[in-house]
Deep mutational scan, measured.
Amino acid sequence: MASQGTKRSYEQMETDGERQNATEIRASVGKMIGGIGRFYIQMCTELKLSDYEGRLIQNSLTIERMVLSAFDERRNKYLEEHPSAGKDPKKTGGPIYRRVNGKWMRELILYDKEEIRRIWRQANNGDDATAGLTHMMIWHSNLNDATYQRTRALVRTGMDPRMCSLMQGSTLPRRSGAAGAAVKGVGTMVMELVRMIKRGINDRNFWRGENGRKTRIAYERMCNILKGKFQTAAQKAMMDQVRESRNPGNAEFEDLTFLARSALILRGSVAHKSCLPACVYGPAVASGYDFEREGYSLVGIDPFRLLQNSQVYSLIRPNENPAHKSQLVWMACHSAAFEDLRVLSFIKGTKVLPRGKLSTRGVQIASNENMETMESSTLELRSRYWAIRTRSGGNTNQQRASAGQISIQPTFSVQRNLPFDRTTIMAAFNGNTEGRTSDMRTEIIRMMESARPEDVSFQGRGVFELSDEKAASPIVPSFDMSNEGSYFFGDNAEEYDN
């Protein structure tokens, strides 16, 4: 783990906690998980779902989305002020799938948001429990990260689609708070800032007046979040320049895209947490497990152990491969979309394939898809080993990566060399080191050039047997250095459309 220093740990961010010791953190995270579980059980009762239907990941996603929508204050306010045809701002819903006479049927349900809020609060001892809501947002974000390569979004903001390893959390809503900021990748933060800068260039009043003052505060806050992700002084200094700019424009845009590229080699610290679907927490609570009393951590053995003992089902389209669908969801559960496939294969105990080789589309089923041909199958979400999630980018030494994705962002704290394609990355730096950030740029390029592919990161860190909950005997895996390590390699994943 990167030293926490003055930073709060993510469990504290996750639970809005002030400084807590490890036991208190485990208890408050457990409380959050228990609340999600209780809410899910109650919703299944309301909807009269069978046990099997309640364990269907598509039903879980609909129920999670309903509660997130019920608590989305800004959108609710907007919907009330701008009524649109056929949208009731006070209601929320989605597809629920039921097994009827041996076939899967889709039923569109509609609930009062007020009623959903009441059920959620009741499951969370009367609190709004925003930490639990954020947790579900991060699960949705991790699922998107594993399912889609955001080529269009990258290109629109002047970045290269091969930089997708920097895009963790790119679909997280803005209201996801400190826990959300911690899991956002460098590219995601750059993209958010670039969008602001572009608006400022096109709209003279963007930075002016009372609204402009708020915009400015948001801009500086985002700059500080991004600065905190960088691990070298030169990158941090460049972020200070971007933040202090009187009138952010093209120079800042250039600096930010430069920094994003540099992060492929001088990786930023991005938190990883295993956020599971509500249909995993519900049955665990129903079986009598007391998360608050037992304590829970999002970055240790607990999620692995929970998945070892969970039964989750998914709808499967006619030509999809259930094992591939399982891999997709497994990666999402562990926030591992940008991790090295060699490491993932070792931990999972079966070969993890790149996205383009998977015969599976996303987990969600569109409303126009034919239910007649839908089957369902068990998702295999178990693992051979477990490993500690990392909050750091690993040290800054790398190795060759593949054509589709030119770097990785480690999820697990496991000893290995970190793949990246130096030639491709360095070719993108057209040696432009003039301007006010020239000395920093020169320094950053120097550090990137001296990074050695064969150097090892996370020295001495290994994986653990599932029986080793105290992480007492690390097993340090050895990897084939020459092997392909990137998930979005030469990829044809669908595009994420909101």
Rank of each mutant, 00 (worst) to 15 (best):
T437I: 14
D240T: 12
V463F: 12
K214V: 15
S3W: 03
S383M: 04
F464Q: 05
A237F: 02
N142Y: 07
L79R: 05
Q311G: 15
I388Y: 11
T45Q: 04
A263Q: 08
E73F: 06
G460F: 01
E64L: 04
G200C: 08
E80T: 10
L256T: 01
N124L: 05
S473H: 12
R26C: 02
R150Y: 14
R117M: 10
S84D: 10
W104G: 09
E14L: 03
A323L: 08
D480P: 11
M222E: 13
R305I: 12
G180P: 02
T423C: 00
G212M: 07
E46M: 08
E115P: 02
G212V: 07
F488P: 05
C333G: 11
E449I: 04
Q58I: 01
A323I: 06
G34H: 14
I119R: 08
K229Y: 08
E115T: 05
A131R: 00
A131V: 13
R213Y: 09
Q405A: 14
Y219F: 12
S50R: 07
S345D: 14
K357T: 03
P303V: 13
K351L: 11
Q149P: 04
M43V: 10
R204L: 08
E449W: 10
L133M: 14
E443M: 12
M481F: 10
K103I: 03
S478N: 05
R162P: 05
A284G: 10
R118I: 01
L193D: 02
V299Q: 11
V280P: 00
Y97I: 10
M32Y: 07
D240K: 02
F412C: 08
P173C: 01
I217S: 09
E495N: 13
L358T: 12
Q42T: 14
S326Q: 04
Q4S: 15
G288I: 05
F420Q: 02
L341V: 08
I57C: 14
H324C: 12
F488H: 05
A427T: 07
E294V: 10
A153N: 02
S367V: 07
M239I: 14
L328G: 00
S345W: 03
E107D: 12
K7W: 03
I475P: 05
E294A: 06
P477T: 12
E210G: 08
S287E: 13
N321F: 05
E484P: 02
W104Y: 10
L61M: 08
G93I: 02
L193E: 02
E469D: 11
E369M: 11
N395G: 13
G86R: 05
T378D: 00
T373S: 04
Q58W: 09
R422N: 07
M1Y: 13
S60E: 04
L341W: 04
G132I: 03
I301C: 06
E454Y: 09
G93N: 04
M1A: 13
K357A: 01
E292G: 13
A123F: 05
S367I: 02
I25A: 07
I57A: 01
S3M: 00
L264K: 03
H135A: 15
I388H: 06
E80D: 04
D51S: 08
G94E: 13
N492R: 07
E252I: 02
A271D: 03
A182V: 09
P477L: 08
P477E: 03
V463M: 13
G356H: 12
P161D: 04
S413M: 10
T411S: 10
N321M: 03
R195D: 01
R150E: 03
S262C: 14
L172R: 01
G268W: 11
P474G: 12
N76K: 12
G288P: 04
K91H: 00
F258I: 13
G349I: 02
F338C: 15
S326E: 01
G404C: 15
T157S: 10
D255C: 05
G349K: 04
C333R: 04
I197F: 12
Y281W: 02
E465A: 09
S141K: 01
G209P: 07
G394C: 07
T130S: 12
S473L: 01
E244L: 09
L276E: 07
F489W: 08
D302A: 03
I406P: 00
Q311P: 00
L381C: 14
G209C: 13
L353C: 11
Q168D: 01
N417I: 13
I201E: 04
T433G: 12
I225M: 12
A451S: 13
P477N: 04
A428F: 05
F346K: 14
R389M: 11
S450L: 13
N309R: 15
S392E: 05
R74Q: 08
L264Q: 06
T151A: 09
S170L: 11
A323Y: 09
F412D: 04
G132D: 12
G462C: 05
S170C: 11
T134Q: 08
S467L: 09
V352F: 01
G490V: 09
S482V: 13
G356E: 10
N76V: 03
D88W: 03
G431C: 13
